[in-house]
Design a protein around this nucleic acid. Sequence first.
DNA 1: GAACCGTGGGA
DNA 2: TTCCCAAGGTT
Length: 340
Amino acid sequence: MTSSATTIFAAHLLAWYDRHGRELPWRAPPGQPPTDPYRVWLSEVMLQQTTVAAVKPYFRAFTERWPSVEALAAAPEEEVMAAWAGLGYYSRARNLVKAARAVAERGGFPDTEAALRELPGLGAYTAAAVAAIAFGRRAVVVDANVERVVARLFAISEPLPAARKPIRAKTDAITPEERAGDFAQAMMDLGATICTTRDPKCLLCPLAGDCAGRMAGDPTRFPVKPPKKPKPLRKGMAWWIEREGPEGAVVWLVRRPGKGMLGGMRGLPDDGWSARGDGIGGERGEPLGLVRHGFTHFDLELSVMRGSAPLGEGEWWRIDRLDEAGLPTLYAKAARLAAG
DNA sequence: GAACCGTGGGA
DNA sequence: TTCCCAAGGTT
């Protein structure tokens, strides 16, 4: 594509974006002053591998409770972890606190892609997105949407993940010098609403006339994905240990190790199903039921037992305030089973 | 590269 | 029900 062709292509897509771009809580309306980098960063981290619908309530809660990066930097880590509960990929919350403190320490966000990339939790995608959207830098932003749109647009037949190199090169070639942030958001909106994984709406697509994948017959052939591996089934045990406290019934909660599965989150004492060698042994006890839960790379069947004595380091937590404990979904399910 | 790291919604 | 996977990063 020639330089002038690139300009026309980008202008075409941006015109579509100005008319059809989605309204989102973290997105400044067209023509507004530069978006607050804190809100851009926070939303981009929340959106990593996470749907817009899932992020919205968390974004509102975080920005209401911690309106600035300085406020977030001053928050105790465990409060942030609890507020993140249910959103998944909990290393994001740990890195969020680290990055906020680094930013507050240096007096504000760095405004270049390379410097942003140094912050914990900001990889190639997020650093480029924040640099482009919050600071108006030209950056090549490639997420799963862009990957799909570009693979179809140029009919890239090489399978993933090797296809990422040519996809990135093509994305670079079509990224304009001006409004690179809007261009990136336009590509992502296009992927989310038109160029969807299944059943793309090619008749509504502003790029249909340029799409090699469509001309090839079936755009959904791109990108070509490798076969996926079967998910193993793991079995484990956890204990629901309840007693009467001065203010009502309480249950024994532990803090999970900082790394690994559900790292840093509260949970029920367990037998080490997460395979990190840090399990707690315990008597079998009365079986309360079975919780099934799917993780990214394995499924879990967790047997929940009624225990009698506290196991490991932990704390008694009021059962009527269990929703404030910040339990990840697995343990929220177990609690529902035991208390519910 | 490849494994590891969550969750909920849509088809 | 089952499968797929979404504004990825770290090791």
